[in-house]
Design a protein around this nucleic acid. Structure first.
Lengths: 322, 322
DNA sequence: TTGAAAGCGCTAACAT
DNA sequence: ATGTTAGCGCTTTCAA
């Protein structure tokens, strides 16, 4: 692998000149530039980023901390981050914390070793103080850690509100919210939005906690059998909604005539099941992209931007609502 | 951020000694070691990996090239890679090529800038010669690039064979294979395995190409309406299988009495739809893990290992087969 | 057992 | 417009 000295020798100039050419900085004669560029080409020279970073103390790398990858939300967000990072010359180093603080700390150490310039975190941990020690710009996803740390959040409150509104305006009287684990902030926000709309309309709804990935079908079944009158269901993801639908089928209910259902996430599941699922869609790619845009602002010293971005959700009307 | 000099000063030793301590290399008195370790702790010192890499010419980083992230196969594999990499002190830098050669080349450049130690590629591009120029160990996923490049492949041939065998042994006579795009190697392999079993049993099957993510329902519908006798269907993923099932429902066919169906991938979709889908399951996490294990062998100079790993598939029997 | 010093590849004063 | 050189933080010979 050729280095800057080799190039300088071949082009018959000093390393400083080569440096000027590759960084497009300082005066350099057009002819010498040509000479250097030719040398670079023939030697297939690519500057060593380590040497550069060692001096400049920036790495053009950002770290991303996520609790999992196996979850459509995170890898879609990751795509958005990666896209925007790439366009700005940043590399992405991923940390999969597995919700494990020890592991996350280990990763944070890696991050300082590699001098990452910035951090995007979607972790649920309480390692904020560790993040701060890094003394680098941080952006938080789906959670407002602190007023001075920019965040990008999906409008969960709005999503909950929207779902309630749709259900009520299309005539539902007896509602249930099959939600995710209520320890999660996102779930709490959706519940608040949902409840807000309910109280505005003077309505009531049951709330049932379920696991996101493997919801307990027996809970759904027994709830539905006890509450025969239910005619409106809001589910915190499409998986739960799919289970509810198959349960209602078993019970001989017609959808959407007897019961209307709204899911969340608009996964491919939504248009696969019969009837096709009406659902609230999160703009995951945008969330990632916006997070990286915020980070970029921080990185370039810009202070005037929307510090706490709320990414809207979209309601996708299909066949499970009237 | 403290550096090695600060530590040396505080411990009243030379930087060389500190280096010996942090690398556990060379002679160092137990007492001095204690001194140094204390200094490291009080200063919260973490060695700068750039300076280290600059000298040692290894980065403890590997690159991963994937065509997408938005695809359960890739992010599950990524989890496996990440897990094993982390356990061996390697960081993962991801490259999302978007099936775009230009973009992939750009990333390869990034990789050399950062001196990555090894590469795992799941790309479908023809940039092998570019990879080779990197002069670093490479492992290929789901594709055997070349005899001298270790690969980790899911047993697609076996999966196809297995599906045919199950269908035939449970009495199917008129078969169809709704497969993915036949340009894909994985699809070709499954088809070969499937056909092999068929020819052994003296049977025949139709082959229909479909898109993996958004299969054209009209193609499925028209095929099924023309070929009324079909009683066995092998689908190259669960999404296609789900569409086939809803189509068969529409036609008034009973599953599995009239028609039996086998999917592929064992996504959560499989146990969500009614009836629950019998399917072929790929060990995605293992594929990633094994790829990193192979890379690790290469990285540590070991030459004696299984160069071309075939990861078995599992048949998951559910309600769409007899 | 420890320290001094050269050097990894690059950048940026400073000098010319 | 170009070259000389110190130094980024670390590792490793070599000498003591």
């Amino acid at each position: 692998m050729a280095n800057i000295k080799d190039v300088a020798k071949l082009a018959n100039v000093s390393v400083a000149t080569v440096s000027r050419v590759i960084n497009n900085k300082g005066y350099v004669n057009e002819e010498t530039r040509k000479l250097v560029e030719d040398a670079i080409k023939t030697l297939n020279y690519i500057p060593n980023e380590f040497a550069r970073s060692l001096f400049k103390k920036v790495s053009k790398t950002i770290g991303v901390i996520f609790p999992h990858l196996i979850n459509s939300f995170y890898y879609n967000v990751l795509e958005g981050i990666e896209e925007e990072a790439f366009n700005n010359g940043y590399k992405v180093m991923i940390c999969n914390s597995h919700e494990d603080d020890i592991r996350e700390e280990e990763y944070i150490k890696q991050f300082v070793k590699y001098n990452i310039d910035g951090l995007i975190t979607g972790s649920n941990s309480n390692l904020l103080y560790k993040y701060r020690e890094l003394k680098i710009p941080i952006v938080s996803i789906d959670r407002r850690i602190d007023a001075d740390i920019p965040s990008v959040t999906s409008d969960n409150y709005g999503g909950g509100y929207l779902a309630a509104e749709k259900l009520i305006s299309s005539g539902c009287k007896y509602l249930v919210h099959f939600r995710g684990p209520s320890i999660l902030l996102t779930v709490q926000d959706r519940t608040r939005g949902y409840d807000k709309c309910l109280s505005e309309k003077g309505m009531f709804s049951w709330q049932v906690d379920l696991d996101f990935l493997e919801p307990d079908i027996n809970i759904i079944r027994s709830f539905l059998s006890v509450h025969e009158a239910i005619d409106g269901v809001f589910c915190d993801n499409d998986i739960i909604a799919a289970h509810v639908i198959s349960e209602l089928h078993r019970m001989g209910k017609r959808i959407p005539q007897d019961v209307q259902i709204i899911g969340y996430d608009n996964t491919y599941l939504a248009h696969l099941i019969t009837p096709k699922l009406s659902t609230v869609s999160q703009r995951m790619f945008d969330i990632g992209k916006e997070a990286m845009i915020s980070l970029n602002h921080l990185l370039s010293g810009e202070k005037e931007f929307n510090f706490h971005k709320l990414i809207p959700v979209d309601y996708i009307s299909r066949e499970t609502t009237r």
